[in-house]
Amino acid sequence: MDANTLIFGSMAVLSLAIFFYLGQFKASKKQTERDDRIDWSVRKFSIWKILLYSLVLVGGIVLVLQFL
């Protein structure tokens, strides 16, 4: 087994162990007891706003590429 496989393989195994262990616990109060949490039962922003922001991003990337 080469060093690449050993390092990244160990990283994968360790990460999976962390995910399966940590994933079972509730998030800290710092995370769950705050006023600005996302409310997944409602959509605060319209799809049009999301679309507009997306277009701004795409336009920005295209503009940057044009001038650089």
Partner: peptide, 27 residues
Amino acid sequence: IQAVGLTLGTLASLLFLYKTGIVKPTE
């Protein structure tokens, strides 16, 4: 194996950051 390791590493790191409240998703 590099991509697998980095992907799962990112998953575990972000889960830790989320659970501990270091990264706080807002609207």
